[in-house]
């Protein structure tokens, strides 16, 4: 058995669940942080693997969760914070569906504006809205105060 396969076995295979793969090394913790903030995820067994060898990426992180279904809201949050990861659904130890998630161009009510003088932080109950500035970068513009931020510096809204 190659060294690489031995390492993969360090995280047990799951019969039924969700795997988040191709997480850039070091970013796994960010995803874990998001997941752990959702109440519905509190009792779900989660395994986090860090710094695995990857042919594609050199090093990668990996998350396995034993649950049948990951809510679209959580998937969206993951796509905003760490775009480009692969989310795989596992049934009977096999991948039966997978999707590469990309950050949406329009982010509605999922991130808080960082500008304390933005109306979304001054008035209660106002839904936030951000638009991607361009295709390549991670920068988004607040629809209200028009300030531009890096997506990673904005805190997620967990309902």
């Amino acid at each position: 058995m190659s060294e690489r396969n031995e390492k993969v076995l360090m995280i047990p295979k799951i019969k039924l669940g969700i795997v988040i793969d191709h997480i850039p090394a070091g970013e796994g913790v960010k995803i874990l942080e998001i997941i752990s903030r959702y109440e519905e995820m509190q009792d779900v067994p989660v395994t986090l693997g860090l710094n695995y060898d990857s042919k594609k990426m050199g090093r990668k992180d990996l998350i396995k969760m034993q649950l049948e279904f990951l809510s679209p809201e959580i998937i969206q949050h993951i796509s905003i914070v760490v775009p480009g990861v692969t989310i795989k659904a596992i049934k009977d130890y096999r991948v039966y569906s997978k999707v590469v998630v990309q950050a949406p161009k329009v982010i509605k009510n999922l991130l808080l504006c960082k500008n304390p003088n933005c109306v979304t932080n001054l008035e209660s109950g106002i839904e936030t809205l951000f638009h991607a500035v361009d295709e390549e970068s991670n920068r988004v513009r607040c629809n209200f105060c028009e300030r531009i931020f890096d997506r990673s510096e904005l805190k997620p809204i967990i309902k």
């Binding site: 003088n117 109306v119 001054l122 209200f144 105060c145």
Partner: peptide, 27 residues
């Protein structure tokens, strides 16, 4: 209004035209 984005918010909720005469240090 001193708050940034207030005119945008007003335009969204109002059924009549809104003109921004200055929202904080934004526009």
């Amino acid at each position: 209004h001193p708050g940034e984005g207030t005119a945008r918010l007003a335009a969204r909720v109002s059924s009549i035209p809104v003109i921004n005469a200055g929202d904080g240090s934004n526009q």
